[in-house]
Amino acid sequence: MTRTIHLSLDINGRRHELDVEPRVTLLDALREELALTGTKKGCDQGQCGACTCHVDGKRVLSCLTLAAQVEGRQITTIEGIAAENGDLHPVQAAFIENDAFQCGYCTPGQIMSAVACIREGHAGSDEEIREYMSGNLCRCGAYNSIVAAVREAAEAVR
């Protein structure tokens, strides 16, 4: 028999109520319970960055975060960064403009990571972008275009 716990999560500015087992990660809660499948599962062990979301504005890995742990925090996923009117976030636009993906699987994580990277002030040079984006792996090897997109978006935001 499984015991579930009731959680109330603040995701992309909306309150979501759910009943889950305590072991359910934020990643699984988003994908399996709330149909927010933009956040991807790559390794499920903190090694690839595909599951990157923001908690209280900081980038974290949702695969190593319990859903229960982030009650009372503000969670932002890839579904929550475009403007209300549907205009893309400057980082989303820069990824399209620079063709910064091939299969696209790592892309939501890359974009969430890049938004935070720019906000942290860690996108000052290509070298710095590579270092501070190193937690997001891309099996297709689109790294050069990803760096270009982050650089362009950082300039646009500035």
Binding site: P22, R23, Q45, G46, L64, T65, L66, A68, Q69, G72
Partner: peptide, 26 residues
């Protein structure tokens, strides 16, 4: 449970099998 980046990783590997996880992040 602090950041969880060791504990949950090892729980997924089957190395850590806590009966109760005590969240201290709050």
């Amino acid at each position: 449970l602090a950041g969880g980046t060791t504990l949950l990783d090892l729980a997924k590997c089957g190395v850590a099998e806590p009966a109760t996880v005590v969240d201290i992040t709050h």
